[in-house]
């Protein structure tokens, strides 16, 4: 069951660009990345697209399909009507390199700003012991494939370039939460989340969770629990008093 599908693909670089129309063969069982590859092979050999595993695990082929942030390799053609024109554009939040390829180094900069795992000083590698129930919250966040679709869709930086300095984005606030909830991490992540990574910018509109291809509950399980911990520390006089009275750290 093949048909000729109508596509509009953004072509260009940082000096300018536009949507170009193509008609490409679509076969049963294919995903959008297959079509982009066929387009490269038959009509636009210089079309730039970043991809790697084609299994939704490497996080390379992030783009926007009909305006929605998605992985090219995990978007089946069968979800579209045969008569539909499918628009494929690069991620909007990051600087363009060429065609569908963006420069995602903003994310690597933010990743480096998160202090690494800090186990107790008297615990040597190999001596780590922890209960499964203590570590499984952090394990959910380890499913992240770093496709940066959440970073791309978050309106805090998508619509406001000027916020990029102060706001690390859902992926790295989730990384802070992962470490904060880790039973062996000793660093103080709560003030960091609010002061260094801009947790207060998040208005929990949940787009990060909506676009996550790993279906991680970023907002409910990472961002909101971190906001509650920040509230404990900074905005809750009862918790502050309890900590003083019972000498909790």
């Amino acid at each position: 069951m093949s048909y000729q599908g109508k596509f509009r693909v953004w072509r260009g670089d940082d000096s300018g660009g536009a949507l170009e129309d193509f008609t490409v063969e679509v076969n049963e069982g294919e995903v959008v990345l297959d079509i982009i590859h066929r387009l490269q092979a038959t009509q636009a050999p210089d079309l730039a697209v970043r991809w790697n595993c084609k299994a939704g695990k490497c996080g390379s082929c992030s783009a926007e399909i009909n305006g929605r942030p998605r992985l090219l390799c995990m978007t089946r053609m069968s979800v579209f009507q045969e008569s539909e024109t499918i628009t494929v554009t690069p991620m909007r939040t990051f600087p363009i390199i060429r065609d569908l390829v963006t420069d995602v180094s903003f994310n690597y900069t933010k990743a480096r700003e998160v202090p690494s795992f800090a186990p107790p000083k008297d615990l040597a590698p190999g001596e780590y012991r922890m209960q499964q129930v203590d570590v499984e919250r952090s394990q959910e966040f380890r499913k992240c494939i770093e496709c940066f679709l959440c970073q791309n869709t978050c309106h805090v930086v998508r619509d406001h370039e000027e916020n990029k300095e102060a706001f690390s984005g859902p992926r790295f606030l989730m990384r802070v939460a992962e470490l904060e909830m880790h039973p062996l991490d000793t660093a103080d992540r709560v003030d960091q989340a609010q002061d260094d990574h801009g947790l207060g910018y998040c208005n929990i509109t949940k787009c990060c969770s909506e676009v996550c291809p790993e279906h991680i509950h970023i907002t409910d399980n990472a961002l909101i629990p971190m906001k509650e911990r920040v509230a404990d520390r900074k905005y809750d006089p009862v918790v502050w008093l309890g900590n003083k009275l019972f000498r909790r750290s």
């Binding site: 305006g67 942030p69 309106h155 998040c202 208005n203």
Partner: peptide, 26 residues
């Protein structure tokens, strides 16, 4: 802010819940 995911919001500036009055959400 935003109206829907990947739909641009109309505001030119955004500070989220970092200052009054929205910091009171805490």
């Amino acid at each position: 802010s935003p109206p829907a995911c990947a739909v641009a919001e109309p505001h030119s500036k955004y500070t989220g819940e970092t200052r009054f009055p929205l910091i009171a959400q805490n």
